[in-house]
Nucleic acid binder design. Structure first.
Lengths: 218, 218
DNA sequence: CTGTCTTGTGAATATATGTTCACGAATTTT
DNA sequence: AAAATTCGTGAACATATATTCACAAGACAG
């Protein structure tokens, strides 16, 4: 029964892992069950990965790569923030629908019991978005389309917070329930959410009516 | 050694539970360790609570009660949304600092593996905030201080999302790290964050400069 | 064809921890 | 004061699962 695991088999194993971690959390995920689903033995899993933690990291990295790929679609053309936001929201809504397990596993990372990964993974994951969003906002400030008294980093952080919750709302049970509570019992449509979020963001990033009258239209 | 557990001892047990659940997550939290910390035996824990899940629910309810209490401080006076927001943010910043474990345990609830509680707990927890925020926004719309084309439920949802992340950022390791990344390596000060968030929110809820010029100042 | 190397297998081990229950001590009842 | 009751104790049990390792089976060198 000697037959080196193919590239495809290894990929299948990672996908099985992502599914298991998403479904049962890092603690409860069973290495035996993952191996079983991928059609390999537990033993060989430990030949490729030293322990559960390192296998988990491999799963996360595969999933992060997929997100990174998706976000490369954002076209960097001259535009207002809302133009970028529209693109990003659409991509993330699609990504969440197609890779629900990725988002669910991502939420797992944020859990306290996985603090040992916090610094390392925050860096790896958020650099994809943090840089992108901060740049967009900074440019728009030079542009004059975003108010200048707003700290670009913090504004990008607020922006990312809203997008993160958008995705959790699409994928994680608790957040879905929470969302329903705010929307009269049913999940709102993607299009409607995007529209409202864009409106919210566009307002947020520019001057409010009061500011305009105070500053006389600067 | 027969001595009925006092009210105080039971409270102490719940606090020990909150700490343990916050620190290790529901799965890894050890009933024996909780009992030990509270100075009682495991056996009696099972006389008061049928199993770990129901003890966990009791801990959550204690913690939710505390949050509810804190939010009662919000003064319902006539005000703009930003006035309310300022109050709410201050309260939550203080609450997060004083009851870090509460927030950490709350984050635990949102975890996938606790989906069995999702619907029940989302209802119990979020009704405190969902109603409050939606009302504030609805009133402000009648007031003319919040744009009317914004759905009050969804706007309240965005608002709560930002506040939730604010608290996680203060209490949970992953979110702290993430926050640092957006702010050049160090956690921003509470005052600075509040100021920026208020600015962001005040803009968001009112008309943007473009809208004003389009609508001629309605 | 034979010996050696590589690599997958899955039973066995070690550990952890939720839950139970026989016991005993304090209190209450008769 | 003896019997019955209430309640806390913690050792023991049941279960789950990460990880290891002796073994086997194919590949390959000579």
């Amino acid at each position: 029964m000697y037959e080196k695991l193919t590239e495809a088999k290894l990929a299948e194993t990672l996908e099985a892992g992502i599914h298991e971690f998403a479904e049962r959390g890092v603690e409860k995920a069973s290495m035996a069950s993952i191996a079983g689903k991928a059609g390999i033995s537990v033993g060989v899993l430990y030949k490729y990965y030293s322990d559960k933690d390192s296998f988990f990291l491999a799963c996360v990295r595969r999933s992060v790569g997929r997100l990174e790929e998706a976000l490369k679609e954002v076209l960097v053309r001259e535009d207002k923030v809302s133009g970028y936001a529209d693109q990003v929201i659409r991509i993330l809504q699609r990504h969440a629908a197609e890779h629900r397990d990725d988002i669910r596993m991502y939420h797992e990372i944020t859990s306290i019991r996985n603090s040992r990964f916090a610094a390392e993974l925050a860096e790896e994951i958020e650099k994809i978005t943090a840089g992108l969003y901060t740049d967009i906002i900074r440019k728009a400030q030079k542009n004059g389309t975003v108010r200048e008294d707003m700290d670009p980093g913090i504004a990008a952080f607020f922006f990312d917070n809203l997008l993160m919750m958008l995705q959790f709302g699409l994928c994680c049970d608790y957040y879905r329930e929470r969302w329903k509570l705010y929307c009269g019992g049913k999940l709102p449509e993607n299009d409607m959410v995007r529209e409202q979020l864009l409106m919210f963001l566009e307002s947020a990033f520019t001057f409010s009516r009061e500011d305009v009258s105070h500053e006389g239209g600067k």
